[in-house]
Structures are given as structure tokens and as C-alpha cells.
Amino acid sequence: MLDGHVLVDAHVHVPLLDTLAPAWVDWARQFGRPGILEEIWRPDGSPDPAALDRHMADEGVDVALLFCEYSPKATGYQRFDDLLPLVEHNPRRFRPVANVNPHLHHPIARELTRQLDLGAAALKIHPVHGGFRADDAMMYPAYAVLVERGVPLVVHSGTSTFPGSTNSYADPVYLDAVVRDFPDLQVVLAHGGRGWWYDAAAFLAVSRPNVWIELSGLPPRRLPEYYARFDLARLSRKFIYGTDWPGVPGQAANARAIAALDIPEDVVPLVLGGNALRVYSGLDPAV
């Protein structure tokens, strides 16, 4: 726990370093805490489960959702199965998140089902890196599986500077049809419309009960600026805490900065953990 609150970091990357594009390592060194790669990753590029567990405990993180990404054009080929040793080390703290790319996985529903059967708490898709739109018909079989299994969809919804990215695919407008066609699907907007689409992301979140804004990659002190056209007290009820770790100086510091914003006192525990426990599949903070 952190300051009496359950803390769920809903956006964490712990790949094998040799599966990455060089730009990813540069990003982690630029935005992360100095020395964090050497602290958590072994010389062979594999993450040390015990070191990762200690780090999360020190930062007050009760549950961390671990991402993978099949985007060889942009960030690399980060395999879902490589997350499983980390989850096995502490299955209560660590949960994997599935990822599929319609250009690589066919039939897509079969691969998603495989990852869900291995314990995935959500499906994260990465249109901006993977080279597809969220409303592409190729994705609809995957969304049907999510609804059947009661598992949420996380969508990268923000600009990316990685080489090979197609930023236009991050536009939240492409989710309008998805939310229409799958009204029972919980949809989480990772990065909250970062760059060009804060208003669009916020509008979807306040107008649709099943749409959420996940705060990874957004400096907490700038949230009132990013969402200036919306009532922050109301909008914050749809926030889910996430960091984009290791590309963040500190998880506890970010969480405390969010708690210090001008949002209702009863909303703070929802942002830091309560909303994630409601949305994601089978989380157990055990506090």
C-alpha cells in the first residue's frame, strides 16, 4: 500500500532487452530513474523477478500489470510468454496483459484466447506501433472474446516518438465504433489521448460508462492543463493510475502527485487502485 491506499500500476513494461528496438532502451534511460535498467535487468538482458518484486514493494505498488507488445516495426517483438516467469515469482503482485497484432496473429481470437488462458488480466492493443486502426474488422473477433470472458480492452491512445510509429492510428475517434458495437466491453485509453486528443479521450470517458482514462506517460501536475475543458473532479472518477514504468522517475512520487491534485478526497483511492480493481480481470491486492 501507499499512504493507506491500494496502489495498482496498470502500465508496466518488463521485456527481455534483446527483443527490443534500440529506441526503447534509449527511452527508458532518458525518462526513467538513473540506473534502473542495471538494477532490475540482468547482464543478459532478462529481468530479475526478485529485484522487480523488491522495487514494486519499495514503491508501494500492490499490483503491477505487465505489458508485452508485438510491434516489430516500432518497438520490437516483446513476447507474452516472457512475462510468465515474473508472474510465477509473485502472482498476486504481477499480472500479465495480452497483446495481439492482426498483421502477425491469425486467427487472432485463438492467440488471444491462449494468452487469456495463461492468466492475462486485459488485452492491450497498440495501433500506433502495430500499424492498424482499433476499429479494423480484423480486431472484432478479439473484442468478441473479451466480452465473452469479461476482460477489458486497453488501447494506446496518444502520440509516440518511436521510429516506425503511425500517430494517426492513436486517435480515440476510432474507438467510437468499437464502443458502439461492443457496449459491454470495458475500454481503457492508455496515455489518455496524449498529444492531440485529450478532449476526445475525455469526452469518451465522461459520456460512456465503459470508457476509462489511464494516466501512463502523463505528468500528474499537468493533468488540469491537459483536461482544462472538463470538470476535473468529475473526469477524475474515470482515471486509472499507470506510469509507463520504467520510463518514469518514480511510481510512488507520481501517485502522491495525483493524490495532491484538486480532486475529491473520496476519488483518490479510486484513481490509485479502486477503478483498476473494478475494471481489470481478477486482480487481488491482498491488503
Score class of each variant (00 low, 15 high):
residue 12 V to S: 03
residue 79 R to K: 15
residue 48 D to L: 02
residue 96 P to H: 12
residue 257 A to C: 04
residue 127 P to S: 12
residue 86 L to V: 12
residue 195 G to K: 02
residue 38 E to T: 08
residue 261 L to R: 09
residue 90 N to L: 02
residue 284 D to G: 04
residue 265 E to C: 00
residue 171 D to A: 11
residue 137 A to G: 07
residue 108 I to H: 12
residue 99 N to Y: 09
residue 220 P to R: 09
residue 178 V to W: 12
residue 29 R to P: 10
residue 18 D to R: 15
residue 116 L to H: 11
residue 157 S to A: 15
residue 10 A to Q: 10
residue 25 V to W: 09
residue 134 A to T: 13
residue 149 R to M: 04
residue 133 R to S: 10
residue 127 P to A: 10
residue 24 W to M: 14
residue 95 R to Y: 13
residue 169 Y to W: 08
residue 220 P to L: 07
residue 248 V to K: 02
residue 68 C to I: 04
residue 167 N to T: 04
residue 185 L to P: 12
residue 31 F to A: 09
residue 241 Y to W: 14
residue 181 D to F: 01
residue 203 F to D: 11
residue 4 G to Y: 04
residue 174 Y to Q: 03
residue 96 P to Q: 10
residue 116 L to F: 07
residue 196 W to F: 13
residue 155 V to C: 10
residue 72 P to M: 02
residue 104 L to S: 13
residue 256 R to W: 08
residue 240 I to G: 09
residue 210 N to L: 09
residue 278 R to V: 02
residue 253 A to Y: 00
residue 117 D to V: 00
residue 222 R to M: 13
residue 233 A to Q: 14
residue 270 L to C: 03
residue 14 V to C: 11
residue 160 S to D: 13
residue 23 A to Y: 15
residue 251 Q to A: 07
residue 76 G to M: 07
residue 67 F to W: 13
residue 24 W to K: 12
residue 142 A to F: 08
residue 178 V to S: 07
residue 58 D to L: 10
residue 33 R to Q: 10
residue 273 G to I: 03
residue 151 V to H: 08
residue 15 P to T: 05
residue 218 L to A: 03
residue 271 V to P: 03
residue 229 R to A: 13
residue 186 Q to A: 15
residue 216 S to A: 15
residue 183 P to I: 09
residue 42 R to V: 03
residue 30 Q to F: 04
